[in-house]
Nucleic acid binder design. Structure first.
Lengths: 150, 150
DNA sequence: CTATAATTTGCGAAAAATTTGCAAATTATA
DNA sequence: TATAATTTGCAAATTTTTCGCAAATTATAG
């Protein structure tokens, strides 16, 4: 259970284990990537100020990452709590797709970083373009409609 | 001159070539990456509403990209107007470093995307960690101070 | 389990960031 | 250079994020 890891992380850093924090975490576990606003809506028992404060705390502790997906900033659990992965965002339909592991890319990144004398803690790769479905639509009918909201 | 490309892009899409747009573009050419607020401050002749509206337009036309750098969202000219590159952000001092070309990574990304049946339009990679200087500091004195603001 | 001390929450209000309506100014075109 | 269309600047409205403080919750020691 990942929840144990969260709890020990909070304790280690002298923060209380509270209901809002646990609920927030549970919501993040259920959803792949959420905007701040979606998060607020999904934790209706708690005030938005509480959500903002705990997002900040989770960032500080490295529990979550902020992603730039399309024009939106979204939040997801960091690699500590879920398998490391990259994202593809469809420009047309807005869908966010988790990409399969790419060991070669990871290796390349690591070796470049080492060569430059950096110490990398994490990284994120976002690819934007057309998903297979929208690519096809574009080829045939042409892309006329507005992007679907996420 | 890249400015010609901007002008033809505007014309092609039936937008006017205006002073605010040209000034905005010039500022973006001078600086590697700016927050919206920095942009507003650097174009003091024009209203912030104008800046926001033109940021939106530039996004639409693919003139600029939004980057997640550290906790900030910044704006920079897209690959159409400058050489494609990735970023390293130092967690400690906040510095943003442009990484050298990495053909292997580019190739890996391309082949993965093709294999999955996507059509990629662009991508961005951000690596976070410690720059050589802060890495060293960390090893010796330990990292006590607040990150320097960008 | 209970009392105590410390942190966190909820709420209202404030501050910051972004968007909008509309008259005046700017730009394209012919 | 006149005309039509878009864009700008300004003020006001929204939306998003932050803050202060009393009340509630959580940790800890007994």
């Amino acid at each position: 259970m990942e929840i144990r890891r969260l709890k020990s992380l909070l304790k280690k850093n002298k923060h209380y284990i509270t209901k809002p924090r646990l609920r927030l975490f549970a919501v993040l576990q259920k959803h792949p990537a959420l905007t701040v606003n979606q998060l607020i809506l999904l934790v209706p028992k708690h005030d938005q100020a509480t959500v903002y404060r705990n997002i900040a705390l989770f960032e500080e502790l490295g529990v979550i990452n902020r992603l730039r997906l399309g024009w939106l900033t979204k939040i997801e659990l960091s690699d500590i709590f879920q398998h490391h992965h990259h994202h593809f965002t469809c420009i047309n339909c807005g869908k966010v797709i988790t990409l399969p592991d790419q060991p070669a890319i990871e290796k390349n990144i690591k070796s470049m970083v080492d060569k430059q004398g950096f110490k990398a803690m994490d990284h994120q790769l976002e690819i934007r373009g057309y998903c297979p479905r929208c690519k096809e639509l574009k080829r045939t009918k042409s892309l006329q409609s507005e992007p679907v909201s996420s």
